[in-house]
Design a protein around this nucleic acid. Sequence first.
DNA 1: ACAAAAGTGTTGAGAGTACACCCATGC
DNA 2: GCATGGGTGTACTCTCAACACTTTTGT
Lengths: 233, 233
Amino acid sequence: MSEEHEYDASRYERPSVTVDVVIFSLRGSELQVLLVQRKHWPYQGMWAIPGGFVHMDESLETAARRELAEETGIDDPNIYLEQLYTLGDPGRDPRTRVITVAYFALVVSDLLHLQASSDAAAAGWWPAYHLPPLAFDHADILQYAMRRLRYKLEYTALAFQLLPETFTLTELQDAYEHILNERLDKRNFRRKMMAADVLSETSFVRGGDHRPARLYRFRPDAVAEVKARRLFP
Amino acid sequence: MSEEHEYDASRYERPSVTVDVVIFSLRGSELQVLLVQRKHWPYQGMWAIPGGFVHMDESLETAARRELAEETGIDDPNIYLEQLYTLGDPGRDPRTRVITVAYFALVVSDLLHLQASSDAAAAGWWPAYHLPPLAFDHADILQYAMRRLRYKLEYTALAFQLLPETFTLTELQDAYEHILNERLDKRNFRRKMMAADVLSETSFVRGGDHRPARLYRFRPDAVAEVKARRLFP
DNA sequence: ACAAAAGTGTTGAGAGTACACCCATGC
DNA sequence: GCATGGGTGTACTCTCAACACTTTTGT
């Protein structure tokens, strides 16, 4: 809000404001990102982060959730969504001045069958560590989103946002390894997770081909703690 | 950028976009914030974070630096400035839809004599831990700015942005204590600073009333490291 | 000589890291 | 009975926190 040059917003030409949403999911135990292929100039044929204009009567987060729903079919207020950064260099879009507020979302892949929802734009999942060239400044946004995701994983129990309701410790470690893109020591990982006191044992096991593995879930109050640690508000 | 509802930004009514800049300084060894007093409705007479509209031909950061310069008289690309968060709830400003990109800046108080620059709005420094009621959602912004400042202070050498070129270890510790709002152990603080390897001893001492204290400066490459660690880009 | 701030080391606890073997099950 | 992934413990290093006295200067 300007305190000096008072008021009259109409004196100023206004930029367009969009939200872009980096949608992460674990698919086949790999960290992937949902991208859409551009049909028109500029950057025709290139892949881009899904996004759209902010409507006058919706908050930024509402706009981001709307984009997420349009792209994935998932309309659930519990989906994890966090604001990343706002980019607004003049010239980042050659058509007009566009300021975009970037978000990232974490979705459980089980919920995703719905997909090809709202429109005809080609959409596809890409491995987060092997992305195609991206339109606009979207490579910057993605690099930043992945940095933030890795970073938050180290001090919050964010991973459960990408996992189904119950999971084995091996599956959890696998998720961490794919997100962080590094191998972790099994014993240390388990000890640390247990010490963090965010898991609760279920009475079930997953029977595979071999020795069954115990199933865990995230403690509901640990989920609450993660929400409380969200950076803003 | 919307990939789906293509293009024509003119189909959408556009919000106003502003930048607000939380300006921190250490004055009299206290952490203070520069606020301006509103002259008009809404929130007339209340204090607010300085800010203004983003022009069509300037980047967000350029707009923030322009606001900083208008408010403090300091026009220096080395002033530390970091994007905080973007707020855009409909109704946060009763006049019209306004989306604001919040920044925070760290300035050395020695450079600040210039002040009462661009315009007639009453401006004043307030103790960061004893703020008046604030207009709009500015209390949220300030709370978040202080959290981020405290937080970054713990993993970067950000404090030098608030201190003069050379300083004693006691002055440095004093700065940390006022920003973090807690007492620190002198021996542990010094050991930690030395281990962090960000200071270089000068050959000078500050002669006070008593035993003189050695003067230090931040190592130029430590300054570079802090810049490299900035979250974006 | 004394007041005032500058400067300096040690110890104990807890966290993180590296590392190798036995266990339970399906076939 | 063997192949496969599940599950477990220990020793070392390093970091962090608590804590009090001596030194240097100005007056």
